[in-house]
Simulated assay, not measured.
Amino acid sequence: MGPVPDCAGFMDLTSYLRYAGSVARTGTLLQAGFSARSIRNAVAAGEVARLRHGIVAQAGAAPDLVAAVLANGLLSCVSATTHHGLWRLHAPERLHLLCQHGSAAGAVIHRGSVVPPEFPRPVAGLTDTLLHALRCLPPVEAAVMVESALLQGRTTLGYLRQRLPGNRNGAARGILDLVDGTADSAIEVVARLLFRSQGIYTQTQVHLPGIGIVDFLLEGFLIVEIDGSTHLERAQVKKDRGRNNASTLAGYAVLRYGYQDVVYNPQRIVDEVWQVLRGRVIR
């Protein structure tokens, strides 16, 4: 499970427990230097609740963290994304747990670990989280997570490849080929893979004189912008309008799409992109 920070830097048990995710095994608290008596006193005072023998939690503890501790596991794969600050496309329908032994009803269980947890919270280390995702999730969803970690400078493609040896990990290694670290958001990863899957020459984050940086330039003349929520703000709408006009005046075609379009209606995007490209592709 990795080293557990001791209680020296914490005034009391409740502060430490909050640091640990507001739920913990009593063994974790004992390892951190708190006494069994201090745990009993905190329960008696109503500062923490005993969920069952050996597990205590504070009010408001995140349900996924509570479920992980109750299952004697660690959140991993897509279930660990929010705790690691990673992008994800969809919230998981089932909990994904790293459990070295046993199982949990209704959960997706991952085995094998190459790094210790990064903190006392019941969350698998970043490397384990990414490796589990590469072996478990659809390629685009796993690529989104890896690209997020790559952009944060928290891993490298070479490091992950080294930890995916042999034929059984061939598909997982193949997903790493989809990651290039050029996206500004999860949805841009999806759009990039969509365009390239169609055999369209796709450049990302291209600076065009008089226009600025565009999300995508397809076949050298079609600009595709992926709009997030900030593009609905008045100032951004005005800026986007000016960029669209500048793009048209410079001879580019422009298409704009949002999250819902990319995730839930990709075929419409493909059809519209090809409608613009058809007859003008010179390669």
Rank of each mutant, 00 (worst) to 15 (best):
P3Y: 12
G9V: 02
G9D: 14
F10E: 13
S15N: 02
S15Y: 02
A20T: 03
G21V: 06
A24N: 07
R25L: 05
T26S: 12
T28G: 08
T28R: 10
A32P: 03
G33H: 02
G33I: 06
F34V: 08
R40M: 03
A42C: 15
V43W: 01
A44Y: 04
G46Y: 13
E47H: 14
E47I: 01
A49R: 06
L51N: 05
I55V: 11
A62Q: 12
P63T: 06
P63I: 11
D64L: 12
D64M: 13
V66Q: 09
A68D: 03
L70P: 02
L70I: 14
G73F: 15
G73S: 13
L74H: 12
L75I: 15
V78G: 01
S79K: 06
A80S: 11
T82N: 02
H83S: 01
R88N: 06
R88F: 01
A91W: 13
E93D: 14
E93N: 11
R94W: 07
H96A: 05
L97D: 01
C99W: 02
Q100L: 14
Q100N: 07
Q100R: 11
Q100P: 12
A105Q: 15
G106V: 03
V108C: 11
H110N: 02
R111P: 04
R111V: 08
S113D: 03
V114Y: 06
E118S: 07
L126N: 01
T127S: 04
T127P: 00
T127Q: 15
D128K: 02
L131C: 10
C136A: 03
L137Y: 01
P139C: 10
E141G: 09
A142D: 09
A142F: 04
V144F: 00
V146H: 00
E147G: 10
E147M: 05
L150E: 11
R154I: 07
T155S: 07
L160H: 01
R161C: 14
R163W: 00
R163N: 05
L164A: 01
P165H: 00
G166P: 02
N169K: 03
R173Q: 07
L176R: 00
D184V: 11
S185H: 05
L193A: 13
L193S: 10
L194E: 06
I200H: 10
T202F: 15
L208T: 06
F216I: 00
L217G: 06
L217P: 10
L218N: 08
E219G: 04
E225Y: 13
I226Q: 11
I226E: 10
D227C: 02
D227A: 03
S229I: 12
E233L: 12
R234S: 08
R234G: 02
Q236N: 03
A246P: 11
L249A: 14
A250I: 03
Y252A: 07
V254C: 02
V254L: 05
L255V: 14
R256A: 08
Y257E: 03
G258A: 13
G258M: 09
D261A: 13
V262A: 13
V262N: 04
V263K: 04
N265F: 14
Q267E: 15
I269A: 10
I269T: 06
Q275L: 06
R278G: 01
